[in-house]
Design a binder for these strands. Sequence first.
RNA 1: AGGGGUAUAGCUCAGUUGGUAGAGCAUUGGUCUCCAAAACCAAGUGCCGAGGGUUCAAGUCCUUCUGCCCCUG
Length: 309
Amino acid sequence: MKPIIVISGPTASGKTALAVELAKKFNSEVVSADSMQIYKGMDIGTAKPAAEEMQGIKHNLIDIAEPYESYSVAQYSEAAEKVINRLHSEGKIPIMAGGTGLYINSVINGLDFSSGNSDENYRNELWSEAEKYGNAQLHKRLSEIDPESGKRIHENDVRRVIRALEVYKVTGMTMTEYRLAAAAAPPKYNAVKIGLEWDRAVLYDRINKRVDAMIRQGLEQEVRGLCNERFLKSTAAQAIGYKEMIAYFEGRMTLSEAIDAIKQGSRNYAKRQISFFGADKDINKIAVTGKDLPCIINEAEKLTGGLLL
RNA sequence: AGGGGUAUAGCUCAGUUGGUAGAGCAUUGGUCUCCAAAACCAAGUGCCGAGGGUUCAAGUCCUUCUGCCCCUG
């Protein structure tokens, strides 16, 4: 089984720095798992690693989409798999790093998003149905075909109710069966997962400071330059740091309100990430509060020491 | 100084004709198989500015004080 190293953690936890160090050590490359750094031109607000930070280490899956395009896990996992295969064929251990848990899981746990199991039209149909007849009606239909998912998914979580219905229509499998199949499948990689864990208050402080730094670096100008009709309707425009700036431009908040909202949004995001990664028992957590980079690298190396191609 | 207004959860506020308090946001916890920096669920919180009075009963009425806001001079 081919090895892979996965570095996860909340925003501003220092994933990039560790990934670069490990890539240097293993003479490999970084595979980014970040749903917003994929967009070109969104640099400051997504804290995209700058050239100095990368230290000559190649970062894959950054700047692979236009900000006005729509992109999703399905495309990501396909692209990531290609990069990983390439690295393996070159005899390198891929270093995957990023904060988008679903993206990581899609490749590591082999979640199946292949194009055959989606139906855009049906999905849209269900959305309008939900609007017309209400969430409860749709949820009831899910409960009939797949009681377990019905119990698991709240009726207001319309996206998931719809996706479960969609999966059933396209594959004939209920979402419950679908998940079971993924869980039963043998692991694709010999993955060593590392999670960076911070003391909450310290992490929040880092986040606040990082947002201030983004503003100094010219976040406002960056977002201004991106704004056009297509961008405003895109997924990318929902990114933290961007949606608030847009609100400011449109007069819905003052600049200082926008900055506060970015900080708050980032903190809330970090909390969700902590919760997401916390559920993965395979992650080896490194408590990093108060530790310097060499010390963190040392702990990470202990965890990855046994990996061989 | 005089007149008016206001004081309720960390914040912004709601509290009907008096029956010991609520919503949003924040916070905390959680969910997550194609928008995931998204979407969704759950939970806690109050000397109702301070004192006095009326009343069986006061966040709600009266009064004094204090803070803040507005108007007039």
